[in-house]
Design a protein around this nucleic acid. Structure first.
Length: 708
DNA sequence: GACCTGCTGCGGTTTG
């Protein structure tokens, strides 16, 4: 059937691969991509052959004899580009089509070759595309003027994020006439909202979703070990060692510091009992070469067991082969992330995924169980929607103006207005932002034209201009000249102190503040490094499920004895509140001089309620894991004042503007937001950090239930 | 107590 639709060289490739059959997503993609002109989102679990599902029909249909690049593949990670390059190149040998990697670390002469003779397939990052649009817009026309397909890998990592808005805008800029239209194919294992996914192409009605719901069977087990904030419980580490010693395992402990703690502790035990020594850590602060070695080891070693402790760096599709088991320590923040992590396990197609979920705190355990239960229900939290990306507009306005070396104001406004990333912003919004940028010397007006201003030059000529996310300043850690990693400066960075990094223990012998270098030697004992960061946000549906679990009688066969007991304890603790309506009723515990209010709401609603309580003069503390407020007041007083929390909304804009004055770092979630007029900074804060509409609904409907 | 992601172009010198 669909096999017959493919071109001869592609059929030969499939025969040479000795595939017994095409996977369901491949059948669907081949027949749909070849028989229609629609855009497609291919949603199917990890390792189900999505890359081939896109490329087999694309390569069959495309005539590569035309000048210009025919297919553009966009990836969120350089490492993923390097992996996919090998796969796609193998496939393209059958067609004699050249494939070029284009990212910051890709070979320069290959790029130069492509510019001399634009053809074939290019694999690129959004930031590299941005850089090209800014610095060499003529190359964009020259290379991509004849594009037939754009493939976006791991598209869920872009949907609903700032980086996604940037990419949407870039793709819209590539479509600038007179270029002929190209089709978009998005690939993902986890899509939480199909409408948002379709909108991502800029043409919702012309985009279809091909979905293969079949999931790999998962064998899961929850284990509970009560622990403290500082270190993991020893029993947990021992149990984890026994669990993973004869396996290939990926361990996700949720933070870089914990990653180091886990890998070093496991390695110590292993040294003592003469187990294998393949314990690694993998996260953003580990040196790139060290990380690549770890990836290489995992992928290419035969038979040897290993354990890699990692953060979300190993969550996306980097090819490390599959592992025997995935271990999660304390709760995942989202179901989407749980699915990505699960996808790493289960060696062969037929084999089950194996997942061990440890927890060290009651609320973390409950959150983990809630994510698991929602996953079992087939639920994935929807992405954020950002219909007014004011800050990204600032960035794109600067980028377009620099790229065209000055532009007529009217043309700039129209280009931004017609860009699908900004369709919900009005002409007057755009004009207001441009005027403000001009007042701040980021732009300069020359009659009808706009050019980059004095302050703007500093911004657009910086190497840091091309991305829309912020990163912290780091020090390079070196051992006899070889890089181990990059860590943010903290009070712990003092000569003589020991620290853990890249699964090893080091002693700091010298800190060079000018060169931002930390020189270390090997040591025997040390502390996990402290990394600053912001907690990932938790969706309301997860918190809602946590509440339901407290009052359900459901028995989970995935829990070990200790976690059954922990769930029992939590349920018993909340029995006296006797919540009946999970939508509106919330437990309120009366204490001596204070009340504890459990909102079971998502991060943004909690942020908003915190602000409103503060504005109403309440002293309060938000405990994130339990989603509860400790408020220094009496229940009667809180009940009386509660509906009036809304009164602060009358002049909320002034309150927020004051807040920005007092704590400018509250806008640090947005790299380009600081360049907006104040009015729009306030709006950004309202949309991205708070959620007043939902918070008001919550306040209106919320009924406190006290323990009796 | 808290994740992750990427990244000029040019001129000059050295190397194969």
């Amino acid at each position: 059937m669909s096999f017959e639709l493919l071109s001869e060289p592609i059929r030969r490739y499939i025969r040479d691969q000795r595939w017994e059959e095409l996977r369901p997503i491949q059948h669907a993609a081949i027949s749909k991509i070849l028989s229609t002109n629609d855009n497609y989102i291919l949603a199917s679990r990890t390792a189900s052959g999505k890359t081939e599902a896109a490329f087999l029909p694309i390569l069959s249909q495309t005539d590569f004899d035309h000048a210009g690049v025919q297919v553009l593949y966009i990836s969120p990670l350089k490492a993923l580009i390097n992996d996919q390059f090998v796969r796609v190149e193998e496939l393209c040998k059958y067609l004699d089509v050249p494939v070029t990697k284009w990212h910051g670390e890709a070979n320069q002469s290959a790029k130069t070759r492509l510019i001399k003779r634009p053809q074939g397939i290019v694999l690129i990052t959004p930031e590299s595309l941005e850089a090209m649009l800014v610095n060499k817009p003529f190359n964009v026309k020259h290379l991509f003027g004849n594009l037939k397909f754009v493939v976006i890998d791991e598209i869920h990592s872009f949907i609903g994020t700032d980086r996604g808005t940037q990419l949407k805008s870039i793709i819209s800029r590539l479509r600038n006439p007179p270029s002929p239209p190209f089709r978009i194919i998005g690939l993902s294992a986890t899509i939480g909202d199909y409408v948002e996914a379709k909108r991502f192409t800029g043409n919702e009605t012309g985009t279809k979703v091909l979905l293969d719901r079949s999931a790999k069977e998962v064998e899961a087990q929850f284990r509970y070990f009560e622990g403290s904030d500082s270190e993991l419980p020893l029993d947990l580490v021992k149990d984890l060692y026994l669990e993973t010693e004869n396996n290939k395992a990926l361990i996700f402990p949720n933070s870089r510091g914990r990653v180091e703690e886990v890998s070093v502790k496991l390695k110590k035990i292993s040294d003592r009992v003469q187990g294998h020594s393949n314990y690694f850590s993998h996260h953003s602060s580990v040196d790139k070469d060290v990380r690549e070695y770890v990836e290489f080891f995992a992928k290419n070693n035969r038979g040897q067991n290993f354990a890699i402790a990692c953060t979300s760096t190993l969550e996306l599709g980097i090819d490390i082969g599959t592992v025997d088991e995935v271990v999660q320590i304390d709760a995942t923040n989202s179901i989407s992330s749980l699915i990505q992590r699960l996808g790493r396990s289960g060696r062969r197609n037929s084999e089950k995924s194996r997942l061990i979920l440890y927890a060290t705190k009651p609320w973390s355990f409950l959150q983990s169980l809630a994510c698991w239960a929602l996953y079992q229900d087939g639920f994935i939290e929807p992405p954020e929607t950002n219909s007014r990306p004011l800050d990204i507009l600032v960035h794109q306005a600067l980028s377009i103006t620099k790229g065209s070396s000055g532009i007529e104001i009217e043309l700039l406004v129209n280009q931004l207005k017609q860009n699908c990333a900004f369709e919900d912003l009005s002409i007057s919004d755009i004009e207001e932002i441009i005027d403000h940028l001009t007042e701040c010397d980021l732009f300069e007006k020359l009659r009808k034209e706009i050019i980059i201003g004095i302050e703007g030059e500093k911004v657009v000529n910086s190497r840091n201009f091309y991305s829309v996310f912020t990163t912290e300043d780091t020090f390079k850690v070196l051992s006899s000249g070889s890089p181990i990693g990059d860590i943010p400066f903290s009070p712990q960075i003092v000569e003589g102190e020991n620290l853990l990094l890249a699964a090893r223990i080091w002693k700091i012998i010298h800190v060079d503040f000018d060169a931002k270098r930390i020189h270390v030697i090997k040591a025997l004992d040390g502390k996990k490094p402290s990394f600053s960061g912001t907690a990932a946000s938790v969706h309301g549906s997860v918190r809602q499920k946590m509440l339901e679990l407290l009052y359900s009688k459901e028995v989970f066969n995935v829990l070990n004895k200790a976690s059954v007991m922990e769930l029992g304890k939590l349920r018993k603790e909340f029995t006296p509140f006797n919540i009946q309506d999970f939508q509106t009723e919330r437990p309120m515990r009366i204490k001596d001089g204070s009340v504890e209010l459990f909102t079971f709401a998502g991060t943004k609603i909690n942020n908003t309620i915190y602000l409103l309580l503060d504005l109403a003069g309440f002293e309060c503390k938000l405990n994130t894991p339990s989603s509860s407020f400790e408020i220094e007041t009496s229940a009667t007083h809180l009940r009386a004042k509660w509906p009036a929390l809304q009164s602060a909304l009358q002049d909320i804009d002034e309150h927020l503007s004051d807040l920005i004055d007092k704590r400018p770092q509250i806008l640090s979630f947005s790299k380009w937001g600081s360049l907006l007029p104040r009015k729009f900074q306030v709006e950004l804060l309202k949309r991205k950090y708070y959620d007043f509409n939902e918070a008001i609904k919550f306040i209106d409907s919320c009924k406190f239930v006290e323990n009796c």
